[in-house]
Simulated scan of single mutants.
Amino acid sequence: MGDPTAQALCEALRRQDWRTARDVLIPVTDPDHHAFCLWAACRVQGVQDWIGEWVDAEPQSTLPLLVRGAHAVDWAWEARGDAWASRTSHEQFREFHRRLTLAEDCLKEVVARDPDDTTARSFLVTAARGLQVDREEAERRFYEVVARHPWHRLAHVQMLQYRCAKWFGSHEEMFGFARTVAAEAPPGTGLAHLVSMAHLELWLKLPEGEDDQYLQQSEVLEELHSAADRSVRHPAHGRYPGWPAPHNNFAMCFALGGDHAAAAEQFRRIGDMVTQLPWAYLDGDDPGTPFAQWREKATGGWG
């Protein structure tokens, strides 16, 4: 997403150069930026094959454990795949659980040694879904993050996912959480975009034909505009690490909702910073294709 620190970290991890990775991460003190860098690092292939070298080389440091644990969360979801549970094999679930257990062990050791590490705690919120921890424990993990950094972006996104109907919540609970956060969070955090995520989650559940009609309803578009005004369209909403994600969410909502003027505004701000989600909902193999098609449609070709 255009963040040079995250890019440098990923490049170091691809080279298996943990010393450079360490030196990139140590100066990152902002909790949201730190979590974003680890989120990016999760997507580097093969880290699990050599990360033990870093852990053994610096046993007093929590940083290699954090990288190993955060990466293992994404590695676990890779084993599970993207299919619904009914189409996921027992072998996939076993490997999913094994990798998540590794992630939990690493992340829990990090917070035991450094209780204020909000990045480790935010990834424990993610792991809570996969390990099917009870609601009380999942909420405890989330509140441990926000007690230290109240508007932590990654933790809020992951807690919204926990509250989705496809996991352990409901549409009503998901929207209640998104709307409460949107009303209370400072505009500069961008967290009002949780409302767009909630509408996309409901859109995903609807049959083809009804899905786009849902986003085209006047009350839905009105709420999306209000959430955009409190996040991506607010003067305080700058280009923080990960900024393209909320813009992409609103672009897709407005585009499918038929408000091409509002979509065009978001496409103009995005430029070519297309994100995998939400566009992979339209084409899992090539998210850039639906992004480009809808940008062309919304902007008349000048986007």
Rank of each mutant, 00 (worst) to 15 (best):
A6H: 08
A6W: 04
C10M: 13
C10H: 03
C10S: 12
E11N: 15
E11L: 15
E11W: 06
R14A: 15
R14K: 14
R15C: 08
R22F: 01
D23F: 00
D23L: 05
P27T: 09
T29R: 12
P31Y: 12
P31A: 13
D32N: 15
H34N: 12
A35E: 11
W39V: 13
A40W: 12
A41F: 10
R43H: 13
G46M: 02
G46S: 06
W54L: 02
V55C: 12
V55W: 02
A57T: 08
E58R: 10
E58T: 14
P59S: 14
L65H: 12
L65Y: 05
R68L: 06
V73E: 02
D74W: 11
W75P: 00
E78W: 09
D82N: 10
W84P: 07
W84F: 03
A85R: 11
S86V: 10
R87W: 01
T88H: 03
S89T: 15
E91M: 07
E91D: 15
Q92H: 15
R94N: 07
E95P: 01
E95G: 06
F96P: 00
T101A: 08
T101H: 04
L102N: 03
L102M: 04
C106N: 12
K108V: 07
E109F: 05
E109M: 07
V111H: 01
P115H: 12
D117K: 08
D117A: 13
T118A: 15
T118W: 07
T119P: 06
R121W: 08
V125L: 09
T126R: 11
R141V: 05
F142H: 11
A147F: 07
H152F: 07
H152R: 06
L154K: 14
A155W: 06
A155N: 11
V157N: 14
M159Q: 13
L160E: 12
C164E: 07
A165K: 12
K166L: 06
K166W: 08
F168T: 02
F168D: 02
S170V: 03
H171I: 05
H171K: 05
E172V: 06
E172M: 01
E172D: 11
F175K: 04
G176H: 04
F177H: 07
T180P: 00
A183V: 03
P187T: 05
G188T: 01
T189D: 07
M197V: 10
L200T: 04
L200F: 05
L200G: 06
L202R: 13
L206Q: 04
E208K: 13
E208H: 10
E210L: 13
Q217G: 14
Q217T: 14
V220Y: 04
E223M: 11
E223Q: 15
L224C: 03
A227M: 09
R230H: 15
R233Q: 10
P235M: 07
A236I: 00
A236K: 00
P241F: 11
A245I: 11
H247P: 00
M252Y: 00
M252F: 01
C253T: 03
L256A: 01
G257M: 00
A261D: 08
A261N: 03
A263R: 01
A264E: 02
Q266D: 10
R268M: 09
V274T: 11
W279T: 00
A280I: 11
Y281Q: 08
D283T: 09
D285P: 01
D286F: 05
T289A: 15
P290G: 06
A292P: 02
R295Y: 02
K297F: 03
G300N: 03
G303V: 06
G303L: 09
G303N: 08
